[in-house]
Design a protein around this nucleic acid. Structure first.
Length: 583
RNA sequence: GCGUGUGUAGCUCAGUUGGAUAGAGCGUUUGGCUACGAACCAAAAGGUCGGGGGUUCGAAUCCCUCCACGCGUACCA
């Protein structure tokens, strides 16, 4: 990376200067103490390093230090200048030229780090209950998770994507009971969910179970309740487990279908139920008991999570003998570790914040390293309709992810869900996401890609004058364009290198953006970057005509267009947003 | 109350780990197509970085303290 090159030049110079005793009382320099930054004012340079912090050790004024350091540097065709304690750097043609060449050479792998400590990562996200359709909040985790998976894979890690199905516990009973009511309704019985609020909480009164009920009736060939005479097999169709199993399977099917449609691909759906059946949950409880971390109180078993930094101890087996949600979750995380993953990354909604400490505590209590678990807490999503916030989380007014995608499309939904810092509450404005105007960043970016494609098409197409019927030959033959791309010569870009400097630097920034994004797990930086790159490209396009009579200039600019297209493609691939050829 | 996140331009948000005159997009105003897609570009106006203290050469950034809002604070999942 150019900034690393610059930093290395400076650090080498400092070491030489110290050796010569030119930096006053400074006797040694440890690499990494200085870092590059972006100058506030673009006129200063492309990158800058502030050496003021060395003044304390050297006991020399910062400008003097800066000048001394610069005097030890061979600038090649780059430019170094000193203002106060800042050393500014202007990138020369060689580095710019090499950047474009690198894009052509590495192509799909442009931006992938050379050497990186790769890990075997299990990324868990969405993990919704199979009790209903996804709401828009799930959409945020789905989008962010899948982008993060793509990014980490690109970065070099081995990533295994998993969805934990909460298919055990009381909510499944609730689901079965709710389906029973819907089925009876469909069969003509005058029955409805309780109106009393506390009783109603034992049901899922949403409409989404109606089609499920219809399907249940159809498959089982039920005609009416009346035909279920006493003693015949009809009762069997209202068996609680039979109903809940059916509803659960149906919900899972719909969820999986939606995820695929939303370009989210899990390697595995891990059922909580199988975890119980395998005996792994009991095994974990036993291990905790053996290590003396369990005690009894009020008829329940408590885990001493407070020994490991949790606020208080947690119940692990209720007084009625059943397990809590946490119990299975402990076993699940231990199972992940036993499957040999170096790192577990979970994306959880901020409403699960209280769970972090207790799960980490359990991992530590069982003798594993809690630092292997990295939990990304995402703030929730607010839906904005006509400028008014519609709070999510409440069952009423629930907008499903399905509805949202149908309304605004997969591309826009993915982009909007991924474009904000995970720490901020996301306002999803449906009207804005739907527009095809400048207000919508997705279209802005896609337009840049379509524009690049369009230029490349025009370069090799003959032009027809509609009035005279006259044909002008194509500015460039297809073979020439193929040759330009496939056996790219680094010198090609030179004619336009001055006018394209900002754009090339932005292309170069892709590498540091990827690094930063992968290391901080913040995927929104990719969305920002892609907008910035599109902006630089549009700007370049308006200022410089690509197709012209000056063939060398045209080739230079076409090469740049190809480079932009490649990088946009790579970035959009990670976002799993389409890069259209035409719009 | 405690824990946690947020507070930056009219709106939505960045701010690369403490540095130069505070940065974008939208919105507003002005200008740019008989030329590669104007779904675009160029420019202007717009700020007490929630308030108040502190740390130091230097703070939107670190510490303290208030204020406002979201989320959590179950033997629910």
């Amino acid at each position: 990376m150019i900034k690393d090159y610059f930093l290395n030049e400076i650090e080498t110079a400092i070491e030489k200067a110290i050796k010569d005793g030119k930096l006053g009382e400074m006797k040694e320099y440890t690499r990494g103490t200085l870092s590059t930054e972006r100058p506030k004012n673009v006129d200063f340079g492309d990158f800058a390093i502030n050496v003021s912090s060395l003044a304390r050790h050297a006991r020399i004024a910062p400008p003097m230090i800066a000048n001394t350091i610069v005097s030890y540097i061979v600038p090649e065709d780059n430019e170094y200048s000193v203002i106060g304690g800042f050393i500014n750097f202007k990138t020369g043609k060689t580095l710019l030229k090499n950047t474009v060449a690198e894009i052509f050479k590495k192509d799909k792998n442009y931006g992938k780090p050379e050497k990186v400590k790769t890990e075997k990562i299990i990324l868990e996200y969405v993990s919704a209950n199979p009790t209903g359709p996804f709401h828009i909040g799930h959409g945020r985790w789905a989008a962010m998770g899948s982008v993060l998976a793509n990014l980490l894979k690109f970065y070099g890690h081995e990533v295994y994507q998993e969805f934990y199905i909460n298919d055990a516990g009381s909510q499944i009973t609730k689901l079965g009971n709710s389906l029973a009511i819907r089925v009876r309704q469909q069969l003509g019985e005058d029955i409805d969910f309780p109106t009393d609020e506390t009783e109603r909480k034992n049901f899922y009164p949403g409409d989404y179970l109606i089609p499920v009920a219809k399907k249940y009736i159809e498959i089982n060939k039920l005609t009416s309740l009346a035909t279920c005479g006493r003693g015949n097999e009809c009762e069997g169709y209202f068996d609680a487990k039979r109903l809940s199993d059916f509803a659960k399977a149906e919900m899972e099917r719909l969820q999986k279908e939606l995820l695929e449609n939303f370009r989210v691909h899990f390697d595995n759906f891990y059922s909580e139920l199988t975890l119980h059946k395998s005996g792994k949950v009991e095994e974990c409880v036993q291990k905790l008991k053996d290590s003396g971390k369990i005690y009894q109180k009020d008829g329940a078993d408590w885990f001493k999570s407070s020994d490991y930094g949790d606020d208080q101890d947690r119940v692990i087996k209720k007084a009625d003998g059943s397990n809590t949600y946490l119990t299975a979750d402990i076993a699940y995380h231990i199972d992940k570790l036993e499957r040999g993953f170096d790192r577990m990354i979970n994306i959880w909604g901020a409403d699960h914040h209280g769970y972090v400490a207790r799960v980490k505590a359990s991992i530590e209590a069982l003798g594993y390293d809690p630092n292997k678990l990295e939990i990304l807490l995402g703030q929730l999503v607010n839906l904005v309709i006509n400028g008014n916030e519609v709070r999510m989380g409440k069952r009423k007014n629930m907008v499903t992810l399905d509805d949202l995608i149908e309304e605004v499309g997969v591309d826009a939904t993915r982009f909007w869900m991924a474009m904000r810092n995970i720490d901020t509450t996301l306002d999803f404005d449906i009207e804005l996401a739907k527009t095809n105007s400048d207000e919508n960043p997705v279209f802005y970016v896609q337009y840049a890609h379509a524009r690049a494609c369009s230029i490349l098409r025009n370069a090799t197409e003959e032009k027809l004058n509609t009035e005279t019927g006259e044909k002008t030959p194509a500015p460039l033959s297809k073979t020439e364009l193929d040759e330009l791309i496939n056996s790219y010569n680094p010198e090609t870009i030179l004619p336009t290198i001055e006018s394209a400097k900002k754009l090339i630097l932005k292309l170069e920034e892709y590498k540091s953006m990827i690094k930063m994004s992968a290391e901080t797990r913040q995927v929104y930086t990719i969305c920002r970057y892609v907008q910035e790159l599109a902006s630089e490209f549009h700007s370049f396009y308006n200022a410089n005509r690509v197709i012209s009579d000056d063939k060398e200039m045209m080739k230079a600019r076409l090469a740049l267009v190809v480079a932009v297209k490649k990088v946009l493609n790579n970035a959009l691939d990670i976002l799993a947003v389409t890069a259209p050829e035409r719009m």
